[in-house]
Computed example of a mutant assay.
Amino acid sequence: MPRFRTATLAIGATALLLTGCATISAPTDTPAASDAAAGATDSFPVTIEHALGETTIDEAPERVAAIAWSNQDVALALGVVPVGMDTQVWNWTGDADLGVYEWTQDAIDELGGPQPVIFSSVDGVDFEAIADTDPDVILAAQSGLTDEDYATLSEIAPVVAYPDVAWFTPWRETITMNAKALGRSAQGEQLIADIEQQIADATAGSDFAGKTAAFFYASAADVSTMSIYTGGDSRTALLQDLGFDLPQVAIDAAAGGSFYQDFSAENADQLADVDVIVSYGDETLLPALQADPLWNTIPAVKNGAVVTVGSGDALSAAVSPTALSLPWVLDDYVALLEDAAAKVQ
């Protein structure tokens, strides 16, 4: 997994708002298993093309495993409780408990469980734990699987990998690919339409048009460098969904296949067309940036149009949009962005 995506979701992991815990094994016949196949409406077999090859799923899957980020939320939003899923704690140090965020746990509870096995992603893909859940399909449409990962997982079950570039899968395509794998394409299309309507309702009257915004990683403790998440990354792409334009640097870097780009303070002028900065961090970030004579030349910093979303807590995770986190965070996030947009001059 690329370093910034891992690191930024791991900061403050012990403070994460989590529910649920790891289990040892999954029974071979569960409500989740029977419901998964029963709700399929597509004809099988289905074939899904992706960056790592082509995957054919012969029959409607009964046992669904989901790995990496957001894939489990698609299954849950479509009425399927996975038999196993990756922990949502992106913590490479191993000192945080395995668990899931509340929007995911709420969906598991609403569907009547049972609680999925939670795979540890501390040391990469947990092949043995995934195999132990005996899945019929492995959802990984939003992931960073390597060729080797994909080959090993494919010995366990058919794998739905990312469509083009690792970690670049938009939330809509994550839904579309995973829904097809579950035999629920029509339900997936409706889910996308429902979320788009929620976005339209939440942003009605917002003054985002004509303003640029991007998501950043910055630290008040060290403002020598800021990193921008490019237009290919789901965090910045969500800002475009909400009505902002993207700054040119985010567009250009995404075209080169990068989901982030570092900028030193000496190159602050390259971010001059960013009207609103959204970043991990807390209320100490803006004063630190404004105290720096280079960063304070950026209009977003000078005007105070900076939104911080925390580090490692639920809000900071929810802005990496999933089928469940996006509805959960939408109203609060839009309110924060409206406050920042009002400061743009």
Rank of each mutant, 00 (worst) to 15 (best):
Gly53Pro: 13
Thr55Ala: 11
Glu54Lys: 15
Trp92Val: 14
Gly99Val: 02
Gly53Ile: 10
Ala96Glu: 05
Leu52His: 07
Thr87Ile: 09
Gly84Arg: 02
Asn91Arg: 06
Ser70Asp: 12
Leu78Glu: 06
Asn71Cys: 09
Thr87Pro: 10
Trp90Val: 13
Asp73Arg: 01
Ala77Tyr: 03
Met85Pro: 00
Asp58Trp: 00
Thr93Trp: 00
Gly84Ala: 14
Asp95Met: 04
Thr56Leu: 06
Asn91Phe: 12
Ala96Lys: 02
Trp69Asp: 15
Ala68Met: 14
Ala96Leu: 06
Ile67Ser: 05
Gly53Met: 10
Gln72Val: 04
Arg63Ala: 12
Gln88Thr: 07
Thr56Gly: 04
Thr56Lys: 09
Thr56Ala: 04
Ala65Gln: 06
Gly79His: 03
Ala96Asp: 08
Ile67Asp: 03
Leu78Gln: 06
Val80Trp: 00
Leu78Pro: 12
Thr93Met: 09
Gly99Ala: 06
Asp97Phe: 00
Trp90Asn: 15
Gln88Glu: 15
Ala65Phe: 12
Ile67Tyr: 03
Leu78Thr: 02
Val81Trp: 01
Asp58Gln: 14
Asp58Thr: 14
Pro61Lys: 03
Glu59Ser: 15
Val100Met: 13
Gly99Asp: 03
Pro82Met: 09
Asp97His: 06
Gly79Cys: 07
Asp95Lys: 04
Leu76Glu: 08
Ala96Ser: 15
Ala66Phe: 13
Gly99Trp: 00
Asp58Asn: 14
Ala60Gly: 07
Gly79Trp: 05
Pro61Cys: 09
Asp95Leu: 09
Gly84Gln: 03
Ser70Lys: 12
Leu98Pro: 03
Val80Phe: 00
Pro82Trp: 04
Glu54Ser: 15
Leu98Trp: 00
Val80Asn: 02
Thr87Leu: 08
Leu98Ile: 06
Ala77Arg: 02
Trp92Lys: 12
Gly99Leu: 03
Ser70Leu: 09
Ala96Val: 08
Ala66Gln: 05
Leu78Arg: 02
Val100Phe: 00
Trp90His: 09
Trp69Ala: 14
Val89Trp: 00
Leu52Arg: 08
Val64Thr: 11
Leu52Asp: 05
Val74Arg: 02
Glu62Pro: 01
Leu78Met: 10
Val80Ser: 01
Thr87Val: 09
Val64Tyr: 06
Ala60Gln: 04
Glu62His: 14
Ile57Tyr: 09
Ala66Gly: 08
Ala60His: 04
Met85His: 03
Thr93Gly: 02
Ala77Trp: 03
Ile67Trp: 01
Thr87His: 04
Glu54Gln: 15
Pro61Thr: 08
Thr87Asp: 12
Val100Asn: 01
Gly53Glu: 05
Asp86Tyr: 07
Thr55Tyr: 14
Val81Gln: 02
Val81Glu: 00
